[in-house]
Amino acid sequence: MLRYYGKDLLDWHRGELSSRRLHVLVKHLPRESSVNRELFGEAADWSVTDHLLAATVDHLAAANWMFASVNSEEDAEPLEAPEPVPRPNGTPDSGADGPDADAADADADPSAAAAPGPSPQQLVRFFG
C-alpha cells in the first residue's frame, strides 16, 4: 500500500489527499517500488549508468571486432560480429544514433516523419 508520513491510499477516497498530491507521490516513487516493477518489469532495475555501461561494452566489442576484421589475413574466414549486451526488454538498444535511426522511426510511425514537432502524446508525457 502506498504510505507516506502515516497516511495511505485510502486518504484519497476519504478526501484527505488531493488527486494532484497522489499523482506527485506515484510519479516520484523510487525505482525499486512495486508499482515501477509492475509497470516496467526488469527495466525498473536498470539505471542510466547501467544503460551507459551496456552501450560502452557494445561499442568496445564492435570496435575490437572491426579492428580484428580489418587486420586479419585476406584469405581468413570472416569473424563473427559480437553479440550486444541483453537489455531488460530482451532486445538490444536500437542505437538511436545509428545511420538508419530516422528510417526506423519513420517505419514505426509513418506520421512521425511528416510531423515537424512533437506529437500531442509526447507533449503530455513530457509535461506530465
Rank of each mutant, 00 (worst) to 15 (best):
L2H: 07
G6N: 06
L10G: 14
R14C: 00
R14Y: 00
R14E: 04
G15Y: 05
S18I: 02
S19A: 13
H23I: 05
V24G: 01
V26H: 04
K27I: 01
K27Q: 14
P30Q: 05
R31L: 11
S33L: 03
S34I: 04
R37C: 01
F40N: 11
G41C: 04
G41K: 03
E42G: 07
A44Q: 04
A44P: 05
T49S: 10
D50R: 06
D50Y: 01
D50S: 04
D50H: 08
H51C: 02
A55K: 05
A55N: 02
A55V: 00
T56A: 07
H59S: 11
L60N: 03
A62K: 14
A62I: 09
N64D: 10
W65Q: 09
M66S: 06
M66P: 00
A68E: 14
V70S: 04
S72G: 12
E73W: 10
E73L: 12
E73G: 12
D75W: 14
A76I: 09
A76C: 15
A76W: 15
E77L: 08
L79H: 13
E80K: 15
A81W: 05
P82H: 12
P86K: 09
P88E: 14
P88K: 07
N89Q: 11
P92K: 09
D93M: 08
G95F: 02
G98V: 03
G98N: 11
G98E: 03
A101Y: 08
A103S: 13
A104Y: 00
A104T: 08
D105H: 00
A106K: 13
S111E: 15
A115E: 10
P116K: 13
G117C: 08
P118I: 01
S119F: 08
S119Q: 04
P120N: 11
P120K: 09
Q121C: 02
L123S: 04
V124N: 05
V124G: 01
R125E: 10
F126M: 13
F127G: 01
G128E: 09
